[in-house]
Write a protein that binds this DNA or RNA. Structure first.
Lengths: 188, 188, 188, 188
DNA sequence: TACTAACCGAGACGGTACGTCAAGTCTTGCT
DNA sequence: AGCAAGACTTGACGTACCGTCTCGGTTAGTA
């Protein structure tokens, strides 16, 4: 059965409120009780929808990443399937940099909540798979799996916050691009 | 006044038990109550000694990292100050790989506990400073600060566990060395 | 419009299943979800028919009490209107004893569900009114209202279960009759 | 170990607040969250102390019943061990009437919470045992166990509220005494 | 060896946030 | 068009675990 209208409304309210609270007060102050209260729903509703604190953040991240996902799967260059791999790699990482910069609090919350299951998050897996594909093409001798994880490690919340605080988005983008270029254009 | 005999005994017991529980049951099952109980001390004792869950893991990690620290500060090549930077870099990361492989559970616990304060951990800071120094020498144009953090990101518990499970220590060492070489030998 | 055939079938199924579950698993395990599932209907159906958990038990009790009601209103001695009051009192209480013994679980559920509204239940009110009438005739000086409630208190589920467990139906019947005789034949 | 000073303070605060809320808002509005908040403690504290909603009411009732208990165990006539049984019976029930009248809300909450375990409550058991003793002496042929339960049934919250609303404490006391006299002075 | 004062150990205590559960409501699809 | 199904909402309960606090016991220094 399709999602009921009221459920959809609540779902959107919860996601919106969660993001608001994340930005205004940070991940530590965000409790599910407060989310529920601010969204005007009962706590049980939050849990029914998202299963757990973790699930809430995963879904919120998936939501925020939807545009990138669409671009990667069927968009124009530099993200989409038509562009050459190196352009796609740089473009993809650049998008992630923007995303991370705009959602530091969400990423922090997501990391903390997912804890030991980071690699199981659907969004993370999708990003990783995409990077494995690109890196594999650009540098077949590398351990693409490992490199992909390490590249994604560059968007760790702590690191992003630190870089943004001293250098801003520009520094983050440049640093990420530099890193990627090094990996891809290295000899061998 | 010197540490009392019983206090020292308890302190060692707590560290030993913590590591045991980390290996046998994983970081999630490890509560400070259980540590205290298994060590045969009261919970207050644990907190008196280590301040918090975080502090316990930090101290345990510092303990495990002591040998590397000594080697870096005053040991022979390839770790020590006498060796050339690239050799030191590869040697240092190789040591970290060994350390990480042997202490995955501890690292996982440490990450989870430090949460948003990873960069404040003394051991992490020392490692980071060392890498900044080496990277700065080897590739002056790079954002050494950022690169150092990213390199340390390669020892994320999840990633280490994943790599060890499929490829073992050999793969981890090779992948890390490859990564470092790429960064250092890249053009420009 | 008369009750539709399927509605009647569902209604009977719900009542039957409720009683079954009450006997096999006790009042605490009985949730309306389980009733609905076991009866093969949706939960909404249960609520449409019976209004609430309370209503379900009230109706079930009314059903079980129907025979007694008929006897009291138009049956032969000792229950019916033709018999002398004392005989009617003893006979009525004896019938209640049988009913209670046969439906302990239902009574327990009923008490718990009605909570603070016990006196509003139609069946309870009918029983109480009947007792007030009889007691008022047999002992005009007594506080018939109060006495009637107290007499009905003798069929409290906990008490009935306790007495049945140690003495069986025989003890319950004798104890109730004794109680009633004391009240009715006391001096003054 | 003796109760810690802070624990005792909190314990008293919780009991006091519980009673206040019971009187001002009734049992249905009383949630343990509100109790905790109003007492200025965490919810965990309430549960640590009292185990559950039920336990809270049981302890509060025991507290309120302490004076009667002392009187019964070692006080002067008519309650204490020195007085003749009938005087003790009437005196005891009269005390219960006062207690019930003053604590209707508590009794209602207690009944609802204890649900199917009323007979396990320590205070109830004590009262019951006392009545069994007295009734057994005054009317050896009676089923003292059953009669004692029935007498206590006269202090059912619903009934007490109903009687108080129409007749006040005077009616309650008289009705209870009448009931007891009937039972005790009945022939045989 | 006896005494005292500081200190340590044990775990009871306090608080917060998560997650569960079952009654009751409401939308949607089917008859 | 109206009923049946069950997804949905609610919020109180209870739990878990971190970190604090109290109090009894222990140690070390002194006589």
């Amino acid at each position: 059965m399709a999602e009921r209208a009221d459920a959809a409304r609540n779902r959107r309210a919860i996601l919106r409120v969660t993001e608001e609270l994340l930005h205004t007060e940070g991940p530590d102050q965000l409790t599910l009780d407060r989310v529920a209260a601010a969204a005007g729903v009962g706590k049980g509703t939050v849990f029914r929808r998202f299963g757990s604190r973790t699930g809430l953040f995963q879904e919120l991240l998936a939501d925020r990443a939807a545009r990138i996902r669409a671009g990667v799967e069927a968009g124009p260059a530099p993200l989409g399937p038509g562009a050459p791999p190196d352009e796609r790699l740089f473009g993809f990482l650049d998008e992630l940099a923007h995303l991370a910069a705009r959602n530091v609090a969400l990423i922090a919350a997501h990391e903390q909540a997912c804890a030991a299951d980071k690699h199981l998050d659907p969004t993370y897996r999708r990003w990783h798979a995409h990077l494995v594909d690109l890196v594999g093409r650009l540098r077949p001798t590398a351990d693409a799996d490992f490199v992909a994880h390490t590249l994604l490690g560059a968007f760790d919340a702590e690191l992003v916050r630190h870089v943004l605080a001293d250098g801003g988005l520009t520094r983050l983008r440049r640093a990420v691009r530099d890193l990627a270029e090094s990996l891809v254009t290295a000899p061998r």
